[in-house]
Amino acid sequence: MSNSKQLIRSCCEDISYICDIEKKLPNEGELAQLSNIFKALNDPIRVKILFALLEYEICVGEMVNLLQIPQSHVSHQLKILRKYGIVEFTKDKKMSFYYIKNEYIKTLLILAQKGIKE
């Protein structure tokens, strides 16, 4: 028997821990939400927008100036972030000010940046 087959056989003899792992796995709804978060974070411009929103509510015009990309592109990226429930906006007359909807997204961004700097 090859070494890999022996390893598989030995690790599968006592599977009592599998039940513990199964209990801790996210349910289907949670998995879908988690997957959506990572889909939303799968674009450098969206991540940059989120870092800009970590501490401030920012309108689209300010993001255009900050990111130096067309307004239509900023709006499209914000639409995706809204679709996945990551950002929301408040209206003040004709202006829309965007902010990160949940604190855990802020924490995720900060921890991810800290992790890559280590």
Rank of each mutant, 00 (worst) to 15 (best):
N3M: 03
N3R: 03
K5E: 15
K5Q: 15
Q6D: 12
Q6H: 09
I8L: 07
S10F: 04
S10T: 05
E13V: 10
E13S: 04
D14P: 05
S16Q: 08
I18D: 00
C19A: 11
D20T: 07
D20W: 00
D20M: 01
E22C: 05
E22M: 05
E22T: 01
K23F: 08
K24Y: 10
L25Y: 03
L25C: 05
P26T: 06
E28M: 10
E30V: 13
A32G: 00
A32P: 00
A32L: 15
A32C: 06
Q33N: 08
S35F: 14
S35C: 13
N36H: 12
I37K: 08
F38T: 14
F38K: 12
F38C: 09
A40E: 09
L41A: 09
L41T: 10
D43T: 04
P44A: 08
V47T: 02
V47S: 00
K48T: 07
I49M: 13
L50W: 12
L50I: 05
F51M: 10
F51W: 02
F51A: 01
F51E: 12
L53T: 04
L53P: 05
L54P: 02
L54T: 03
E55Y: 12
E55I: 09
Y56V: 12
E57S: 15
I58W: 00
C59H: 10
C59F: 02
V60S: 04
V60Q: 04
E62R: 14
E62F: 06
V64L: 00
N65G: 13
N65P: 01
N65K: 11
L66K: 08
L66N: 03
L67G: 02
L67C: 08
Q68K: 15
Q68E: 15
P70T: 00
Q71W: 00
Q71L: 00
S72K: 10
V74T: 02
V74W: 05
V74Y: 03
S75T: 04
H76R: 15
H76Q: 14
L78N: 00
K79W: 00
K79A: 02
K79D: 06
K79Y: 03
L81C: 02
K83P: 08
K83G: 09
Y84A: 06
G85T: 06
G85N: 09
I86F: 09
I86C: 12
I86Q: 10
I86T: 10
I86G: 03
I86P: 12
V87E: 09
V87P: 01
V87F: 02
V87L: 05
E88M: 09
E88L: 11
T90W: 00
K91R: 14
D92P: 02
D92F: 11
K94N: 15
M95K: 14
S96R: 13
F97W: 04
F97G: 02
F97I: 03
F97L: 04
I100Y: 05
I100K: 07
K101F: 08
N102Q: 13
I105D: 03
K106Y: 08
L108F: 14
L108I: 14
L109Q: 01
L109R: 01
I110T: 14
I110E: 14
I110A: 12
L111R: 12
L111E: 15
L111W: 05
A112I: 13
Q113G: 02
Q113E: 14
I116L: 07
I116Q: 01
K117E: 14
E118N: 11
E118M: 11
